[in-house]
Design a protein around this nucleic acid. Structure first.
Lengths: 223, 223
DNA sequence: ACCTGAACACCGTTCAAGT
DNA sequence: ACCTGAACACCGTTCAAGT
């Protein structure tokens, strides 16, 4: 009814990117293909080349679109570390909403994505205020936080990114079986872990635990 | 003279995997293709399907091979955190030797790669000794370390993974130009960063700084 | 057991041509 | 300005057939 290919209006960058986002969320990045996208939009594959130089530019557009929806929740009056944590939390939230985002961000250099540039600048400013006055170190810390967040959602327990509940259960069962196939004498920890893997995980606990770890890294050394 | 396709001996899993590793190191993972690999080995693409069920299995074999070369340097008499750090350091070293490894490890679940299973078990044991008695938390910490290490080499300053020196210089110049194109008033930190990006980075400092951050995450909280 | 030939269903991309 | 048709050079994979 409202969908893009029924009402045949003119193709636009925005329409393509939105459709790409829909596709990526539903079937993963690997489904986002020039030809497939064109088909969904009721158009010839070559039509996309009018709006995008090549596929890479399209993917950049996609990443930017997924990130643009993120609204910053940090408050300027909070202490720097609190604001930094808020930024990480919004980033994680964005990747949880759009499972393909984590994989996409992993490749693209953070300097190449416009929506990340603003965030990086702000992070550098906050980091300078807590003592990372060398901007190169600051950049390293910012990268650490970005990739740490990516890592968190990439290894979210339960199932790999997206799956319907039925598949997820089967996937966990399979994972448990794999772990239990290990010789228990040589792998005591992993066989113990096997027994915990089938029950659905407490994701909120996982993420606060994970972000705590991440943030501890930027704080002062203790060892 | 000694190369695989001149002396036409029988194809083997090991030969294929070694050639794949060579190719990945030289031209990146995206060059590792069934058809290309077959060509290098002087054989038909379909020949590989006798030794590997499909490409995914071949890639698993590749990852396993790259990781297998890693020799553990930790000493059992050291305190757990020291051993853990040594494990992270060897992992980082392996990824620095084989630039494609980081990208490969990012996708594959750590439970699926045999060479990682042993490392995960050992890490869980060490983590239990420093207080992570809940094996699920331990697994989260181990994943954090793995992905943190991946993140470090992924954002190594200088150039993206591999490039000849000539390209690397051009790449840095381009990166600097991109950063300097930003409006200086709105992006003061990044424009300051721009001036540092062209000089060759101190990689050893970068990595010890990065691993320090990582390890601080597993230590006790301080905020 | 180990490899080839031919074929299928996919990719991204170019380039001339249409409207 | 915006889109199509036809073509090119690539993919991974299957399946029957060769030795």
């Amino acid at each position: 009814l409202y969908s893009c290919q029924v009402v045949t209006e003119k193709l636009s960058r925005a329409a393509v990117v939105e459709r790409a986002a829909k596709l990526a969320d539903a079937e993963g990045v690997e489904a986002v293909t020039i030809r497939r996208l064109a088909q969904e939009l009721g158009v010839t594959p070559m039509a996309l080349y009018w709006h995008f130089k090549n596929k890479e530019e399209l993917i950049f557009g996609l990443v930017d679109h997924l990130l643009a929806e993120v609204t910053a929740t940090r408050r300027p009056e909070d202490p720097p570390l609190t604001q930094l944590r808020a930024m990480v939390e919004t980033l994680v939230a964005a990747m949880r909403e759009h499972p393909s985002l984590a994989g996409l961000l992993h490749m693209k250099d953070q300097g190449e994505v416009p929506s990340l540039t603003r965030a990086t600048e702000d992070a550098l400013e906050l980091l300078a205020r807590i003592g990372y006055t060398d901007v190169r170190e600051g950049y390293a810390v910012a990268s650490y936080l970005l990739h740490g967040a990516i890592g968190l959602v990439s290894t979210e327990p339960g199932c790999p990114t997206f799956m319907n509940p039925e598949q997820a259960i089967e996937w966990r069962r399979q994972k448990r079986r794999n772990l239990e196939a290990l010789p228990a004498a040589e792998y005591p920890m992993l066989t113990e872990f096997a027994s915990t893997v089938e029950q659905p995980p407490d994701l909120e606990h996982y993420y606060t635990f994970g972000i705590d770890m991440l943030m501890r890294g930027v704080g002062p050394a203790t060892s």
